[in-house]
Design a protein around this nucleic acid. Structure first.
Length: 464
RNA sequence: UCCGGGGUAGCUCAGUUUGGCAGAGCAGCGGACUGUUAAUCCGUUUGUCGUGGGUUCGAGUCCCACCCCCGGAGCCA
C-alpha cells in the first residue's frame, strides 16, 4: 500500500483527500467524546501528525485503545483542517492498522524528557526521540551538503583504505587488524609475534586518516576528497572524542596554505548555511531546548569572515591577555584548549584560522616555511567546540621532506611510495581534515559527541 | 591516563553530615474529566541502595578494593 511521509502530508492543503501514513505512536489521548488523538511520527520531520481515531472504527476497542507510545501503526484517512490549536492539518482515520505494539510497562521511552546519558544506554531506541531524531536529520543534511559542495566544485570523491600499514602522522594509538589467534599467535625465533604469518604478512591497523592516499590522487585529479570512518585507539574520555568517527579530507593540487584556508572557510560556511536553510525546524528545536544562542551563533558564522592569524600572533595575543591560564603561554609550546577557546570566544568572537605553527610539534608532511622554524599548518577554531579543522600545505620538496622525516625519526623506506609523489611530477598541494561529528555538534549545540553519531564507539563502549 | 563529581523505584532525584522501619515527583496501572496536544484531577503498584569484602546488636549511611557514568585536562578531528 502506498504511504506518504508525514513531512509532506503536513505541507498539503487539499483537504478532503485520502492519505495513508505509517509510523510510531508518540502519544495517545482519549476523549470521552468517544474518540482518540494519536500523535504519529515517522522520522521524516520533527513534528508529528495528529490522527483522529473515532470510536466508530471497527477495531477501536480492540486496537486503537491499545496503541501506546512506541507502537507501530499504519493509518489511512481524510486530510482535514484541524479545528483546534496546535496543528493546521490532521487525519480523520478511516482505517487504523496496527503493527508491532509496545508494552508501556516495559517500553523504555516515555513522554517526558529523559537524560542523554540514559538514552545512550538505549541507543537502538533513541532515534525515536525528538532530539536524537533531529540530530540524525542534521547529520544527514551535513553529509549531503558535503558531497554537494565538493561535487559542485569538481572534486573527485575518493575511497581510501580502512586497513593500512602506515601510522599516517605518527601520532595517536591505532587499532590493530589481525587474523592471528590472540591466545597463541605464531612466534618468530626471537619470541616476538610473527606477523609474517598474519593475513597481510605485515602488521596492519585501522586508518587514522586517508590523507596520504588522498595526496596520491590529488596529484592526478587536481582536487579530491575523502569522506569515511577513521579510528583512534586513544584512551580519550571527553565529550569531544570518539574511537570511531567520520572525517572529510579534501586535498588540492597547485595550491598553498592560503588556498587551503579559503577552501576550509567556504566549506564550513556552506555547511552551516545549508542546515540553516534546509533544517529550519530542527535547528529551531535545538535553539529552544538545547542552546538558546544557537541560531545567532550559526548565523554569525555563516555571515562572518573568519579571522586569520599566525601562531606567532596568537602567542602575542595570549601573552597580552588579561587572563590567568592554567598552562603558561610560550612560543614553541602548542596552544592548549583554554588558549584556543580564549582566542575564538573572548578575543575574536568568531571562527579563527591559526596558521604557521612551530615545526617541532607538527607532523612530518607539513611544508616548512622559509624561516626554518615554522610549517604551513592551519587550525580552524570555532567557539564552544575548539578545533574543527586541522590541515596544512604539504611538503612537496623531496629533500626537505626526507630531512623532516629523519628529524622526526621516521622510516623512509616504509614511505617509499609517498616519497615517489615528490620524485615524479611534484607540485605544491594542501589539504585538511574536518571531523563530521564536531560539525554536527556545532550545528546542533549538542554538548556530547556521543549523542551526534548513531552508535558511538568510545573506551569501554561498543555494545550496539 | 590524571583531577573533580556521581551510581538509591522504569525515569529524574532527595536521604549519607550525626548508622536505627526505603522516600518524593514523573512514568505505568485503575477511575474521573476533556477537540486533546509535556493535558488535568483522584487512587495505586514498583527496590540486588553499582559490585565484592570488612566494622557493628544493626550499614543506603562508616572502612577497604574494584567496576561503571558524567564534567574538566591531556591526545586530536
Amino acid at each position: 500500500m502506498k504511504r506518504e511521509l508525514i513531512k509532506y502530508v503536513l505541507e498539503r492543503e487539499d483537504y478532503g483527500a485520502e492519505v495513508t501514513v505509517a509510523g510510531w505512536v508518540r502519544t495517545r489521548r482519549d476523549s470521552k467524546g468517544g474518540f482518540s488523538f494519536i500523535e504519529l511520527n515517522d522520522g521524516s520531520t520533527l513534528t508529528g501528525l495528529q490522527i483522529i481515531a473515532d470510536g466508530d472504527l471497527p477495531n477501536y476497542e480492540s486496537d486503537v485503545l491499545r496503541l501506546s507510545i512506541g507502537s507501530a501503526v499504519r493509518v489511512t484517512g481524510i486530510l482535514t483542517e484541524s479545528p483546534a490549536k496546535g496543528q493546521r492539518v490532521e487525519i480523520k482515520a478511516t482505517e487504523v492498522e496496527p503493527f508491532g505494539l509496545a508494552d508501556p510497562e516495559t517500553y523504555p521511552l516515555q513522554k517526558k524528557r529523559v537524560s542523554f546519558e540514559h538514552l545512550r544506554e538505549i541507543a537502538h531506541l533513541r532515534p525515536r526521540t525528538n532530539t536524537i531524531g533531529a540530530v540524525a536529520r542534521v547529520r544527514n543534511a551535513l553529509s549531503y551538503a558535503t558531497h554537494q559542495f565538493y561535487q559542485d566544485r569538481g572534486f573527485l570523491y575518493l575511497h581510501t583504505p580502512i586497513i593500512t600499514t602506515s601510522d599516517a602522522e605518527g601520532a595517536g594509538e591505532m587499532f590493530r587488524v589481525t587474523t592471528l589467534d590472540p591466545g597463541s599467535p605464531p612466534r618468530a625465533e626471537n619470541g616476538a609475534v610473527d606477523y609474517a604469518q598474519d593475513f597481510f604478512g605485515v602488521p596492519t591497523f585501522l586508518t587514522v586518516s586517508g590523507q596520504l592516499n588522498a595526496e596520491a590522487y590529488a596529484l592526478a585529479f587536481d582536487r579530491v576528497y575523502t569522506f569515511g570512518p577513521t579510528f583512534r585507539a586513544e584512551n580519550s574520555n571527553t565529550r569531544r572524542h570518539l574511537a570511531e568517527f567520520w572525517m572529510v579530507e579534501p586535498e588540492i593540487a597547485f595550491a598553498d596554505l592560503n588556498d587551503n584556508a579559503d577552501l576550509a572557510e567556504d566549506y564550513v560556511k556552506y555547511l552551516i548555511r545549508y542546515v540553516l536553510e534546509h533544517n529550519t525546524t530542527d535547528i529551531e528545536f535545538f535553539n529552544k531546548w538545547v542552546d538558546e544562542t544557537l541560531v545567532d551563533t550559526l548565523t554569525g558564522v555563516a555571515e562572518s569572515d573568519f579571522e586569520r592569524i599566525t601562531y606567532t600572533q596568537a602567542i602575542d595575543l595570549l601573552e597580552k591577555a588579561d587572563e590567568s591560564f592554567e598552562f603558561p603561554v610560550a612560543w614553541g609550546d602548542d596552544l592548549q584548549s583554554e588558549h584556543e577557546r580564549y582566542l575564538t570566544e573572548q578575543v575574536i568572537k568568531k571562527p579563527v584560522i591559526v596558521t604557521d605553527f612551530p615545526f617541532d610539534f607538527k607532523a612530518f608532511y607539513m611544508r616548512r616555511n622559509d624561516d626554518d622554524k615554522t610549517v604551513a599548518a592551519m587550525d580552524v577554531l570555532v567557539p564552544q567546540i575548539g578545533e574543527i579543522v586541522g590541515g596544512s600545505q604539504r611538503e612537496e620538496r623531496l629533500d626537505v621532506l626526507a630531512d623532516s622525516m629523519r628529524i622526526k625519526g621516521m622510516d623512509e623506506d616504509h614511505y617509499w611510495w609517498y616519497l615517489d609523489l615528490r620524485r615524479f611530477g611534484s607540485v605544491p598541494h594542501a589539504g585538511f581534515g574536518l571531523g563530521l561529528e564536531r560539525v554536527v555538534q556545532f550545528a546542533t549545540g549538542m554538548q556530547n559527541i556521543r549523542d551526534v553519531i548513531p552508535f558511538p564507539r568510545s573506551p569501554r563502549n561498543a555494545e550496539f
